[in-house]
Design a protein around this nucleic acid. Sequence first.
DNA 1: AACCAAAACCAATTCAAGATTGGTTTGGCG
DNA 2: CGCCAAACCAATCTTGAATTGGTTTTGGTT
Lengths: 224, 224
Amino acid sequence: MIEITDAAVLTRLRDFLATTDLPDDGRLPPERELAQSLEVGRGALRKALATLQSEGVVWRHVGKGTFTGERPIDTVADVNAMVQRTNPLEVMGARIAFEPEVARCAALYATAGQVAEMRNCMLKAQQAPTWRQYEQWDNKLHRTIGEASQNSLLLGLLDTLNAVRRAVTWGRLRDTPLRPPADHHSFEEHARIVAAIADRDGAGAADAMRRHLRSVESHMRDRL
Amino acid sequence: MIEITDAAVLTRLRDFLATTDLPDDGRLPPERELAQSLEVGRGALRKALATLQSEGVVWRHVGKGTFTGERPIDTVADVNAMVQRTNPLEVMGARIAFEPEVARCAALYATAGQVAEMRNCMLKAQQAPTWRQYEQWDNKLHRTIGEASQNSLLLGLLDTLNAVRRAVTWGRLRDTPLRPPADHHSFEEHARIVAAIADRDGAGAADAMRRHLRSVESHMRDRL
DNA sequence: AACCAAAACCAATTCAAGATTGGTTTGGCG
DNA sequence: CGCCAAACCAATCTTGAATTGGTTTTGGTT
C-alpha cells in the first residue's frame, strides 16, 4: 500500500489551491468531491483542511461549504443585541452625540434638491392630522439630513440608530392628543436646522440639531 | 343595483379592523379574500386600503401582504450592505464625525479603571513589535474610549463602524516597515486624547480625537 | 487493541418549484 | 366614461429535496 502522510495531503491540497481557478466567491469543491479528486480519504482531507482553517487560509461552514480568504463578518443580530442592552435615555444620549455631527456634514454637502425635500418634510409635518403622520415626516426629515451628508456609512449608522430607537421607545404615544399643536416646539427647531443647512453653516446646523434633541429629551423626561 | 360609495367601503373596512382579531403579526387577509368577505369589489377595497395606508394605519408590500401598524424598518444592521456601498474615504469621514463625540462622552463618564486601561493600551501600542500588534492595541484603545462613554448604544454603533472599517480598508499594511517608529505621530495624539479624558475635558477630548483622526486621514491619503 | 477508511447519520444551509400577494393591465358591459 | 372581473406581473413566502461540513458507527486490516 502506498504511504500517504498527513503532510503529503497538505501539500497536495495547497497545490490544488495554487493551481486551480476558483469561482468568484472563492468556494472550493465539497469535501467528498475534493477527496476523490485528490485521491485521498475524506478524513485525511479534513485534517489538512483543518490546518488551513487554523492558518486562516480558508474558512468553512456547515451547509455553505469551504471558502478561501477570511470569513465575512455577520452582524445581523447586532440591532437586537443593542436593543436589549440599551434604554430610552441612552438612545437620546446617542442621538445628541451623533445627529448634530451628521447635520454638520449635511450642511457642507446637501444638494438643493435635498434641502427642498427637508422643507417639504417640515411642511408635511406641520400639516399632519395625526401624531403618527407627524412622526413619519419627522423621521423622513431626519433621514434626509442623513442622506445629505453624502456619506453612506453615516447614513447606515443613522439607520441603525433609528432602528434601535424605534424598537426601544416602543409604545409611548398611546392616548396622546389627536394631533401636534400648531406651536409644537419642534417646528421652529426644525426650521432652524434646515435654515442652517441651507446656509452651509455647519456649526449652526450642529448646534440647532443639538438644541432640538435636548428639547425633545426634556419633553420626554417630563412625560415620564 | 345597490349603490356603494367609496366612503361606505372605507367605513366597512375600518369596522372590520375594529371588530376582527388579527394574528400576532397584524396581518390582515389578502385583498381578494377581504373583498369577498366585505362584499365589495377588489378595486373599491384597494381604494380604501390606499387611504388607510396614506393615514399610516396599515402598510403593504407585494408578496408579503397588508399589515396594521407601522412598516418595520429593516432591522438588519447589514454591515455587508454598508461595506459594499462605502469606501475608505467615507469611513474616515464617518470616524471624524462620530468618534470625537464619543470621546466627549467618555471624558464625562470614564471611570478611573477605564482611564488606566487606556494608558495601558497606549503603552502596549508603543512597545508593539509589529504593525499588526500595534493596530490591535490601537483598536482596543479606541474601543475602551467607547466603553467609557457608558452608553451601550454608542458603543454598539462604534463597533459597527469598526466592523465596516476593517472590511473596507483591505490591503492597508502591505510593504510597510516592520514596526511603528518610535516617533509615530499617533503616540502623542493618543496621549492628548487620554489626558483630556482624564481631565474630564469633554471639548478637549473631542478636539484631540478630531485632530488625531485628521492626522490619520492625511497619512492615509499620502500613501495612495 | 489500535488504527483507518468507508459508510451512515446529523444539522445547517442552499436550491428549485409552486403557491400567495399587492399592483397593473385588459376586455367587456353598461 | 365608469366600473368590475379576469388575467397577468413581479416580489415574496412556503415547502421539500438536495448539498455540505461535522460526527458517529461499522467493518476490516495490521
